[in-house]
Design a protein around this nucleic acid. Structure first.
Lengths: 220, 220
DNA sequence: TGTGATCTGTCAGCGACTGACACTAGCCTC
DNA sequence: GAGGCTAGTGTCAGTCGCTGACAGATCACA
């Protein structure tokens, strides 16, 4: 009984108000990312962003809890895709394989979803700013640790374990997460920033974990 | 020719000025940690801290770059001990063993050094605040990642590798670091907060990594 | 069309942090 | 021991991120 004149089952087309909100939110995100990519994070004030979109500062903070949050808007999208992919893995699959496939397979849909919002190139430039800005890097790592907690929950549930009694889900995910971050960094600072390259870097990094943990590796 | 009246080779006793600085720095750290442990991080303003020590806010920021920094003063001590321990490991030892021993063996000297500055119990209470305050947790993770970078450098050097060409040092350290963080958290939230308990938690967590990464672990 | 819920802008204010300046106190030389 | 030099401190003013309170505008819906 919310709207009239729309077919049952069809997604009720949002009203004017909702669409307006969506538009200003998107405009804020785009302006923010553009400015951050160009002038850096600290070099961009919230007033700069709101001036570009012609809204008040107060409005900005009604959409985003902090200046940080807008910088991670796209990243957030990617994270939710990974979680969904992990949830969708077939039962019985080995835990590490679940994580591996969740990350690798979700990349295509991630890029597609990102493009809807901002150019992929812009996102990459912002990502590099995140990696090189202490305050943002800290926030990024905290977000990553929250994502790991979520993934650990999924693994624990799949395996029928109590996360607080058995440390293995968190351990696996923590080790995995550490490796992913190394791979992310190698990819974003490398020459080839294509999706294929990203997958390749991830794969080789993951393949190195076992051997790296096992004993002496003089035989490079 | 710096001072007169002190035997050659003896550490030149710092002048009155230097001692005064040391005293206010220590007083600020102690007051800050006490307040943070009692009222939480956000509940403690810099003005609260400086009022307790009777110095101006400006002085605080000449000693510490940020409010965060003072919260990590003790943590910082511990970190440097771990790095030193890793550097002191005998050549030829396997990389993972270097990290393991560096962390486990340095704990005794860490606690000793911490006690010089503040009661161990206070440090533990502050640590729990760090873990439960988003802003501090983020900073903590960033610091940890810097520590990992340093450890990766040490490993790479020991093994005669170029860190930027060979990802294995960073991968190993990242995986290791992830596990250590899980162990830290398990320990700090558990009942037994003794050093022995800490070592035991670390050991069991580290022993789980290999098996956790390897395939299916239904056999609990 | 009018009524009520939502969204927005303005304003005032807090807390972290910084630059500039003046003042004080330990240091060092003569 | 008086002098100047330097380093440490306090005061002040200002920026930036962020929030609560209020008032006016805008949309939804009967």
């Amino acid at each position: 009984m919310k709207t009239v004149g729309t077919a049952v089952g069809a997604p009720p087309r949002p009203g004017l108000r909702e669409r307006k909100k969506q538009r200003t939110r998107d405009a804020l995100v785009r302006a923010a990312l553009e400015l951050i990519a160009a002038r850096g994070y600290e070099g961009t004030t919230v007033d700069d962003i709101t001036a570009a979109v012609e809204v008040s500062q107060r409005t900005f903070f009604r959409y985003f809890a902090s200046k940080e949050e807008v910088a991670f808007f796209v990243t957030r999208l990617a994270e939710s895709h990974v979680v969904d992919a992990a949830r969708g893995r077939p039962p019985g699959e080995a835990p590490l394989e679940v994580l591996r496939r969740a990350v690798l397979d979700s990349w295509d849909t991630i890029n597609e979803a990102v493009e809807q919002l901002v150019p992929l190139d812009l996102h990459l430039r912002v990502y590099r700013v995140i990696e090189s800005t202490p305050a943002l890097l800290a926030a990024h790592l905290r977000r990553a640790s929250e994502l790991e907690e979520e993934l650990a929950r999924i693994i624990a549930e799949r395996e029928g374990l109590d996360m607080d009694a058995d440390p293995r889900p968190r351990i696996l995910v923590a080790a995995f997460g550490g490796v992913i971050r190394v791979a992310e960094r190698r990819w974003s600072t490398g020459d080839d920033v294509s999706v294929a390259a990203m997958k390749e870097v991830m794969t080789t990094c993951l393949d190195h974990v076992g051997p790296a943990l096992a004993g002496n590796w003089r035989a490079g």
